[in-house]
Amino acid sequence: MTADAGQDRRSVASYGEVLDVVDVGRVRLTRRYGCIRRDQFEIVTKEPFPSAFRDWIASRGELRERPTFYVIEAPGAFQLTVAPRAGRAILMPRLATDLTWQAQTAREIAEVLDGMLNHGSCLANTRQAG
């Protein structure tokens, strides 16, 4: 997902409209139009998010945990709400950020998550092989 992705569609988009969908390895990243200054990003995997992801993202802001989901609040940057068992998260950027930063941040989160999922799989395969 590039910063320019969906620019043509953005000019005529309405709230909630899908601008771009990319697969970052095992992570599907969907960008939806929010308003002229910010988009919303959905991060989906076919498997649950690893607990290591929570530990990593918690370093980016304040973590609020409920029994079935958690929220990372990064003032001035974003809020990320994660349903780990459902394998789904929503990134809601702050207006203080620009569209380029928003897209880059969403991509970075997806890449880290994909790396963790792949790392977990390699370990599992190694154990099976061993």
Partner: peptide, 16 residues
């Protein structure tokens, strides 16, 4: 449409 629809499509809904 937007509020209830948004809630029923949300991560929180999925989890809870």
């Amino acid at each position: 449409f937007h509020t209830f629809g948004g809630i029923m499509s949300s991560v929180e809904w999925d989890a809870l």
